[in-house]
Design a protein around this nucleic acid. Structure first.
Lengths: 354, 354
DNA sequence: TACGCTGCGCGAAACGTTTCGCTCTTTGAA
DNA sequence: TTCAAAGAGCGAAACGTTTCGCGCAGCGTA
């Protein structure tokens, strides 16, 4: 009832209950209450008095004030290209869970696939005095990252490296995964295998490209540059690249789409054209387990270890953040294995010929 | 170079450049620099001096300190059931964009489908002194929300109402959407229409239920309770409910799955059993435009206006936050229309009989 | 010439914490 | 019985801002 009749509250003003109020009600000094709040030992009588004062007043620590004083906000910033990509959200969820265990909270920023915004959001995170940053680089520029480094804020990179900075990085073994996927197609008898990649200068795309080439060389396949298509890794660009492959005079018998968006785009086109998978075309996708399951026939995909990526990144930032000299050791690089999850979207070329 | 040789920096300490430093370098008082920083007018000479000092020092305002002083953090908390649900992430993206325009940043908390955590995360948001909260309730309990209200922090609810609190709310016209979907099936000649709902006490599920009943009554259809299945709105529960409908002695000719997870579950089962849609079964799903597009045949779905939900919620909280007496007006309820997006997953019952 | 007004800058007090160093009390060993 | 050590609480300063109220010029008007 007090809450509704208090004029300050009705006016929308924050009627802040402070540690001072708790101290007064408990009949103790601020210092003692603070000590209790931070796990220090106080006399039993006082402990009871403080606890009672806290509940009756409804006291809640003001972490803004605490952060100002301690210069630690117990907050880690996460900067990603887009919050609407499932790949990112699954990683975020893992990061968040892991950090919460250690008492850190997470503040997520996405740059909406905009390099300018990537820099601005980094600025905002630093203004907010985050203790550390986990970043999935978008622009690939070192400049936004350098800001954090200059400020002495540790940064962990995930998914891709960035030229010009040396930092802890969590990567996926893209090259090997692509090699495996393409090898499986070659072993099924395919000789003309198309691949839809991303931008030429994108780290992950380059690695997947290398993996493709490695598989070809391994099996003595001559690489036809027409079969290698770069896109922007978005849906429209992915569609264009996929269509270009399909409409090749000597079109491939198998195609590997190397990220979620291009895989999705391919699925749309396949449905539209009524292509029979794997009779007309063998197809391996990337990420998006749920889409792979819903596609008919079930899609074979390369799956990245999203949960593990998040957990590892969280682990690394926590180590940097722990006072235990974590800051001193040099940059580490963790490369996580992914998985080729077999579906029914690839067939043997011999079967087709039969 | 200074950055790498500075021992404080190497030690990981934050070498904070403060407004004090800027004032000293610019040869002005702190007050003047602060005035400039906040858009106040200063003499041209001084403006130049300040700007130069800021760039040479690399000064960045400390919003923690500012927040302590102003009692406004320019931050809005967003509390959702799970960050891994596409429905939520699309809304968050819209909220974030809209709030950023007004200079607010967003801090997202998900409670991982855990009522306990919903309360804890609310506590954390309040400790962080967010200026307002946009919440998609999970537990349906008023208790966590009441905490914010007691603190005088405005709350906007999205997606569902909560008993015991009266607040601005952004809803979707679930009842009408369900009515439309079911009506379309009835008009196609279906008489036995199954529906997979969520928990009985969940607001959205109840509304969708009502819409189903309304459509039946409208067309003089007798409602068979066997055709109405409640689930937990998760994938395993959705599968069970869907299977129960399929395996009914007199199984339905059409089924309406009423959220993303149950729709996904249905898709898996349909693929597994090799059901021919819409010949064997007409099917309407919910949310998940991208899944609907990838499914064969393209799925007819009820789509919620995600972007609009986010934008409206942001709008409402901004109004509450603007000093312009926004706090005074009474709670508003916005009900947004959704859309029935036609695919190829529903057929006329007559066609089947032919 | 005098007066008041306006614009600009400044000092200092707060915001809600933590923490340092001090005092006082209690305890236990010599 | 004495004394040191340990335990507990306290006052006050500091964290980096904003903002209030004041003083000082400069200027236009009477």
């Amino acid at each position: 009832m007090a809450s509704s009749s208090d004029p300050a509250r009705a006016r929308g003003d924050r009627v802040a209950v402070t540690i001072k109020d708790v101290a007064r009600v408990a009949g103790l000094s601020i210092a003692t209450v603070s000590k209790y709040m931070n796990g220090g030992h106080v006399l039993d009588d006082n402990r009871v008095a403080i606890e009672q004062a806290i509940t009756t007043l409804g006291y809640r620590v003001n972490v803004v004030a605490r952060g100002l004083k301690t210069r630690r906000t117990m907050t880690v910033g996460v900067l990603i290209p887009s919050i609407e990509q499932i790949f990112s959200t699954e990683i975020i969820a893992a990061i968040e869970k892991q950090l919460a265990k250690a008492g850190f909270s997470t503040i997520v920023c996405d740059c909406q696939l905009d390099a300018e915004l990537e820099s601005r959001k980094m600025e905002i995170l630093l203004e907010k005095q985050v203790d550390g940053i986990i970043m999935m680089p978008f622009s690939g520029l070192a400049e936004p990252i350098q800001k954090a480094i200059d400020q002495g804020v540790p940064v962990i990179l995930i998914d891709r490296k960035v030229e010009g900075v040396i930092l802890d990085t969590v990567l996926v073994d893209n090259e090997n995964l692509a090699r495996q996927a393409v090898s499986s197609l070659i072993q099924a008898g395919h000789r003309r295998i198309g691949i839809v990649l991303g931008p030429k200068d994108l780290y992950t795309s380059r690695k997947r490209h290398t993996g493709y080439l490695a598989a070809c060389h391994e099996h003595g396949l001559v690489v036809d540059p027409d079969l290698i298509r770069h896109s922007d890794y978005q849906i429209p660009g992915g569609s264009a690249a996929f269509l270009a492959l399909l409409d090749l005079p000597d079109s491939p018998t198998a195609i590997f789409t190397t990220n979620y968006e291009t895989t999705f785009a391919a699925g749309l086109i396949i449905n539209e054209r009524g292509l029979n998978i794997p009779l007309d075309l063998s197809w391996i996708g990337f990420d998006s387990l749920s889409m792979a399951q819903i596609f008919k026939p079930r899609l074979t995909i390369v799956a990245q270890p999203v949960r593990q990526i998040g957990e590892t990144a969280a682990q690394l930032i926590l180590e940097r953040l722990s006072g235990a000299g974590g800051f001193a050791c040099e940059a580490r690089e963790v490369i996580l294995p992914g998985e080729l999850i077999a579906g029914l979207s690839t067939g043997s070329i011999r079967t087709i010929a039969d």
